[in-house]
Design a binder for these strands. Structure first.
Lengths: 262, 262
DNA sequence: CGTACGTTTGATCTTTCTCAATAATGGTGG
DNA sequence: CCACCATTATTGAGAAAGATCAAACGTACG
């Protein structure tokens, strides 16, 4: 399933329906949304702190990240977005962005103008509910990141990031057999975990040495999911995956494991 | 203005109207919400991780906090709530709470049942918008906390927490002249900043020694707001206070300073 | 084939943690 | 009102995780 080739609004509908039933007219109204497909280069900014959010972006391919800077210029990545993920509603109802959104890799996005999406949300309770839930799940992930960065040591922290990716990539069908590409430099990994690149490097080597995972460039391969989950102190509850199992045969998914667990 | 003595739904209406106009019938429907006033003891849990959120709580008096625990039992406080703040919508549309909510002090809350609030939100676009904005502002605060804990040193981190409180307390009229009570032990401060209590103690003494603030018990008094803001690397943008200036004479408020700045 | 960027390594330095003991404080029952 | 107990705050000394600095090594790509 290539997200770039399909109508991005179908993707949006699918995501909303995964959470909650959607009437035919609601679906029609979604399909009427005007949108624009754009290719964006790696490193390009989608939104900068202080900007007025005037559009909402859906990632059809490529990765993006959100970050903030301290006064002395150090950077904290506060979120990463993988292809196919729900659109960016973080700013849509605020007048001024409080952080930067930047592409991690080159990618293709669908842009929806703020006004039309805003109207859609406010006029369609089913859509409003879905947007609220998307936002709450993102909030939950932020909370887990505060915990991760505030209370876990470097090894757990990195392992946790990797586990979160594994789960989210898996949910998008992008991590067959526990193998996925994490297109981040070690410096970016450091900025996401509140560490230095040097230390990230040593931690990654440690995880590898202990047989928890393998790396080849940016390709991550989980060798021992259970052990990894253990050092990561990872519990997927905060991802609220069950909120998105509506109308799906959820047997197996509810078992708590990933598809690639041996 | 004593929040305990007034109708909590008026408080809710006021908060929503601060953000966006509200029709008379919307207001009526809000006033029809059934609610229950409860006194809660310090340390009592309002919600536990794993619970199904079945009610929404507004803080009329007293302080509360949200936290998560790692597997080995260390705690990270991810949010603090002060009296009069917007209700807790974090969990209202999710099936399972991903964190704990606990009272910091004894306090009085108004409880609104999930179903009635959910219906209100979904049937009234003006309310939906307000709830969305409340949620987005909380999200923004989480992001700032990730930055705070991930990229600032101990001194900045504590100073930043204190500045955030100063602003938020001030917005609720609870910090006259830059003096406010922060009813947290140093251990709780440590859990909010990802430090140890011992180190928090030393940092507080440092801030005091350098003439930035004074302490008497849990009473904080800002002596030099500008200097504090400086070491805190504090920029109130992320609090999105402007989102709540609707219909208010915002001259002075927009100037970026606090009421108690000398 | 050279340049730029990312990764890896080693050595040293700092911040913060840990452990442990002491001093305040607040609240409680008598 | 006082003595006592539990909590919280404070101090000191030593240990450790992670940061910093600097250099070398790879790799991709024009």
């Amino acid at each position: 399933m290539d997200l770039i080739k399909e109508n991005p609004l179908d993707l949006l509908i699918r995501r909303i329906r995964a959470h909650h039933p959607l009437g035919v007219d609601d679906q029609k109204r979604i399909l009427d949304l005007p949108y624009k497909i754009r290719t964006i280069e790696a490193q390009a900014y989608i939104m900068r702190e202080g900007d007025r959010p005037d559009r909402c972006v859906m990632l059809l391919s490529g990765f993006a990240f959100r970050h903030k800077l301290t006064g002395d210029g150090s950077r904290q990545i506060v979120a990463i977005h993988i292809p196919g993920e729900a659109p960016d509603f973080q700013n849509l109802f605020l007048e001024e962005s409080d952080h930067n959104v930047q592409m991690l890799t080159r990618g293709v996005v669908a842009e929806i103008a703020r006004e039309s999406l805003e109207r859609l949300v406010l006029e369609n309770p089913a859509v409003a509910r879905a947007v609220l839930v998307f936002t709450l799940v993102e909030s939950s992930i932020f909370r887990e990141w505060v915990l991760n960065v505030g209370r876990r040591d470097a090894r757990s922290r990195i392992a946790h990031l990797l586990c979160e990716f594994a789960c989210r990539m898996n949910a998008q069908g992008l991590a067959p057999n526990g193998v996925y590409e994490l297109p981040m430099t070690q410096e970016q990994l450091a900025d996401a975990s509140g560490l230095t690149p040097v230390h990230v490097n040593r931690v990654l080597q440690g995880l590898q040495r202990d047989g928890l995972m393998e790396r080849d460039r940016r390709i991550i391969r989980f060798v021992d999911w259970e052990a990894m989950r253990d050092v990561a102190d990872f519990n997927e509850r905060y991802l609220h995956a069950r909120e998105f199992e509506h109308g799906r045969n959820s047997i197996g998914l509810r078992s708590g494991g990933l598809a690639f667990v041996n």
